[in-house]
Design a protein around this nucleic acid. Structure first.
Lengths: 194, 194
DNA sequence: ATAAATATGGAGGCATCCTCCGTTTATCAA
DNA sequence: TTGATAAACGGAGGATGCCTCCATATTTAT
């Protein structure tokens, strides 16, 4: 009665497990930011003060760890699409969101796992995060197309791939500025209705 | 007299050294094509039938090896810019070359070392290859800008970074088509005069 | 307090990287 | 030819990282 019922025996999850999970995520976030996505998992476990086995139990793959770390931020980025759509005209909303997208990607400079989870598309593992981003960009593009202001004969996701990919090559804030120019050109190109 | 003179003692380079160098490059090219750019260097040495030490002497880093392998192809790509410029109007030449650039990058699917050597820009090691590409794209862009047909307020290299970066995320031929659309949009965006 | 479920840590097997140096080989001069 | 010597070879070995496995420790529920 006091139970949600369904499964007969449900235990409260162990406190130490959850504590370690969060500890690992925090530690990993710091180290990834420092040393890039190829930082040693053993180092992360060591600095977090847990055994390597514990890290692997919580995050069976490097991707799982990276994905967990950025899930919140990614969701936030996706949510921003809705807000922007509400307070800006379609094309401007799209432009602003693309800028935000680039800013987000740049802060993860060159972390291929993050990019894969956002726009990789091949792996099923991150369907969650990827779907959010896909939904966001589609929403904005559709709106702008609906008004007839732009035309787009390709998958909007591929535009994100280009913007994100540039960041993975020319990591650092330099790409931020370049990408803004690129976004302007792209918007202009999509507008060129003639 | 028969000597070029300058250095007192010049020996003919040893034949085995050059032989092994070429052998390693051929082997590596095959294996990279098979297994991607993360193939084991020890495996390459083993299959080439030389010691791992020999591989490292000739190519101190993985990048050096990759760069050496693709130097010819890269030079060819750069040279194509000149030919295209001679037989096509400026904007069309630029468009065609960008398409070729993407085709080239796609065949090296996701080999980050190749991309770095082409458009990375940070490392001095590949100044050779990168300079060729930079020169090529600048030539074409400058021509098109000179006629007033397009305007471009950014480093053309960053456009290459976007096109190449997209390939590194969405490896495979799918990017080929996406990139073509992207190129068209970019050209249109650069044209949008007003 | 005790049983049962759950989580922990780190040793160990495997792979790769890269360096170092004793041995081998190619070149050149005599 | 034949040494002498510079140049190149090969691979053992130390270091590091990946991931698995399981005896031990901790937490929860009774």
């Amino acid at each position: 009665m006091a139970e949600k019922s369904d499964e007969p025996t449900v235990r409260k999850p162990r406190a130490d497990a959850e504590r370690n999970r969060l500890l690992l995520m925090e530690t990993a976030k710091t180290i990834f930011a420092d040393k890039g996505s190829s930082a040693s998992l053993e180092e992360i476990a060591r600095i977090a003060g847990v055994g390597i086995g514990t890290l692997y139990r919580h995050f069976p793959t490097r991707d799982a760890l990276v994905s967990a770390i950025y899930r919140n931020e990614t969701a936030q980025l996706a949510a921003a699409a809705k807000s922007l759509a509400e307070i800006h005209p379609p094309v401007e909303a799209l432009r602003l969101w693309l800028v935000q997208f680039v800013d987000y990607v740049v802060t993860k400079h060159g972390m291929s796992e993050v990019l894969d989870s956002l726009v990789g598309g091949t792996s099923e593992l991150y369907a969650g995060s990827a779907d959010l981003i896909i939904g966001a960009v589609n929403l904005l593009v559709d709106r702008a197309v609906a008004t007839g202001e732009i035309r787009l004969a390709m998958d909007p996701l591929d535009i994100l791939r280009a913007l994100a990919g540039g960041a993975s090559i020319s990591s650092g804030p330099a790409w931020r500025d370049a990408a803004r120019q690129l976004i302007d050109i792209l918007i202009a190109g999509m507008r060129a209705s003639r």
